[in-house]
Design a protein around this nucleic acid. Structure first.
Lengths: 257, 257
DNA sequence: CAGTGGTCTAGACCACCCT
DNA sequence: GGGTGGTCTAGACCACTGG
């Protein structure tokens, strides 16, 4: 079953523009897993024939999905479904720069621990799983230039990663999101972060080698799929004496009208 | 002197696409202040004649500037230069949501003080002015639902706002960026924020009615113009027990390829 | 109503990539 | 060379806005 065998319903009399209908049909192929991360999608001419529209309309639809981050066009090669990879990790989810610089460094990651435990009430609510379900709790330390500034706690539902083990996690050769994508067929498409200032507790202060009750930045990051299903709760505890969380934006970041 | 009197240089043999050349020519009109915030730009047909290209090419150029946030297209009305206004303030520069919600509330602003002082070394470096120059130091309190969570300290160069007074600042009827734009012809186009966790000092803890040394979030926001001239250093001190700094992003936020 | 931007067509030609 | 996406044309018609 290839995408070119599918039937698409484009209503030429609809109030919804055809390019948007095509965009939505293509998005549904992603949503329903008919187009998978890294896969080459049909070329523009094929889409023109499939949808019986002109090339400009196809290009507008594909362009929308590219702008949204779901497709990647490569001239001379074709159009591909976005996938998580080392080359896409960097800017997408890491926001820290050494004091006085604006350069986002690539962090060094050091594994600390991998445990199975019962979800807390809060974790169960966020992950939308029954209270007391099994979850994996994974700790990592992240650093820049051999100095550790960040402790990361990852909480994911065991039910969604039934075969995950400490060994598989440690021996991955790519990013964590790449592991979710390639080994568990779970694709994180959007993240939301909430930041607070807090005091370092015993665990965190020991791991970061700072005083108990030092002020730290706590980041709760929620990772979701195409279906807006919450997959991962990642809490970062950051000692910000030497680094900053950086957020750059232009004049109309977000919808303003 | 209207924009339609200007001569534009489009090189049809250049390696740079024509739509990008047109985008750059239009951007230069903004940069050189020939098109001003809120102004209606020439309609598409006029641009077609000015640049001697087809409508699709003009639309691609204008679309790029719209995506970048510099122009706003309104069907039936025309295309306008972006301007700072109450309706654009909300999502662009305020990132806080009450605990447990994702809704960015509109903050209440309360004036505290307006002083003239000498710039510190750091302030002078950031604002690119001589050390010891005069700056205005303005304090505000920001709150949500009648509770204050944020102290804002604004530092701007007196030389760039020579006629600004406490009275003018207080009696403005719109946002601060709107005041810069309309009364001082200074247009902030991009902001960069750096966040750290710190301990509240005497001033901040008193203003926010929290204990000395409570952990707070400190945000340094730098506001720049089209010319990448730094205009404003705004430092926010935030008590985050009841609110979160929220940052949402999709899978390819930032350039990843 | 006239004027604006939004959608859509049916191509042509170019730049890029792999073999 | 053959296939891909990128640019560009020269229109037509539609949807929305304000007077």
């Amino acid at each position: 079953m290839s995408i070119t065998d599918l039937q698409f319903n484009i209503d030429r009399d609809s109030k919804t523009p055809m390019w948007l209908q095509i965009r939505n049909e293509l998005f549904n192929c992603l949503y329903r897993d008919e187009l998978r991360p890294g896969q080459l999608i049909p070329n523009e001419k094929t889409l023109v024939d499939l949808f019986r529209v002109s090339i400009g309309t196809v290009r507008k639809a594909v362009g929308a999905l590219e702008k949204e981050g779901f497709l990647i066009r490569k001239q001379g090669l074709g159009t591909f479904v976005f996938q998580h990879d080392k080359s896409t990790f960097h800017f997408a989810y890491f926001h820290f720069a050494l004091n006085g610089t604006d350069e986002i460094s690539y962090p060094e990651v050091e594994f600390i621990s991998f445990e199975t435990k019962k979800a807390t009430k809060y974790e169960a609510k966020i992950l939308n799983i029954p209270a007391g379900s099994n979850v994996y709790e994974i700790f990592n330390k992240l650093g820049i230039n051999k100095k550790n500034y960040i402790v990361d706690k990852i909480i994911i539902s065991q039910a969604k990663f039934p075969t995950l083990t400490e060994e598989i996690f440690i021996n991955r050769t790519n990013t964590i999101y790449n592991l979710y994508q390639n080994k568990f067929n779970i694709f994180i498409t959007n993240c939301s972060e909430k930041l607070k200032a807090m005091s370092a507790d015993k665990t965190v202060s020991a791991l970061l080698n700072i005083k108990l009750d030092s002020p730290i930045l706590r980041i709760e990051r929620i990772g979701q799929t195409y279906h807006n299903e919450t997959i991962e709760l990642r809490t970062s505890f950051v000692h910000t004496n030497d680094i900053d969380y950086v957020n750059t934006q232009n004049s109309t970041f977000g919808d303003t009208f």
